[in-house]
């Protein structure tokens, strides 16, 4: 039963990742990325990390993916062919996969002795306690929030300086015109 769901989610994650890399249009890649995020979230559920799974959906699908889609739709389409440097890309991905596998094998060997640990019942409360315990992760947690605050202030500063960075309909119109011509080219 668990194996079935593992295969389902793992397949979803891998298929999404492969589609993200191979799709011709960037928007399709972004939507395919959603499959990967959902698949990984499912794998987290199977691992007993429920809080992580839902946070994964909340942050990656609800926040980052929406931002990516926003970015793609608000920037003029990239006219360079995506498949131009196939050989380089292919060999680079092979190297990346090899490195990733090496890391995986290394960690599996290291974690093998811990694999009989019991999955925790509910993870939200222990995570919260660890994050706010002075001898736990309190200082890293607070530091991360300071970093986020700096990022927030920085983004506000950048947006204020130019004054025109705003989601309005005129910039969307320009992109639509661009995309229309591009699709006509693709159709021809």
């Amino acid at each position: 039963m668990e194996l079935l769901f593992f295969l389902l989610f793992a397949g979803l994650a891998i298929a999404g990742a492969v589609a993200t890399v191979w799709m011709r249009y960037v928007v399709h890649s972004a939507f395919a990325l959603m499959g990967t995020f959902l698949g990984v979230a499912g794998l987290y559920v199977l691992l007993g990390a429920d809080f992580l799974a839902i946070t994964q959906i909340l942050i990656y699908v609800g926040g980052i993916l929406v931002l990516i889609l926003f970015g793609i739709m608000l920037t003029p389409p990239d006219r360079t062919e995506r498949n131009a440097k196939r050989v380089i890309g292919f060999s680079a991905s092979l190297v990346a996969i090899a490195l990733f596998l090496a890391v995986q094998i290394g960690s599996v060997v290291r974690w093998a002795e811990k694999s009989n640990l019991e999955a925790p019942k509910a993870t939200a409360a222990p995570i919260g306690r660890e994050l706010l315990r002075p001898d736990g992760y309190l200082i890293p947690f607070e530091l991360v929030s300071v970093v986020l605050l700096v990022a927030l202030i920085g983004s506000v500063f950048i947006a204020r300086r130019r004054k025109a960075v705003r989601v309005d309909d005129s910039s969307t119109a320009a992109i639509l015109a661009e995309r229309g011509t591009l699709q006509q080219k693709a159709g021809a």
Binding site: I57, L58, L69, A124
Partner: peptide
């Protein structure tokens, strides 16, 4: 589920993706 609130807020993001 014991994270019901979080789950509902999280899954509602999928509808946004669908609308986009």
């Amino acid at each position: 589920i014991n994270l019901g609130v979080l789950f509902i807020v999280g899954i509602s993001a999928l509808a946004t993706i669908g609308v986009i």
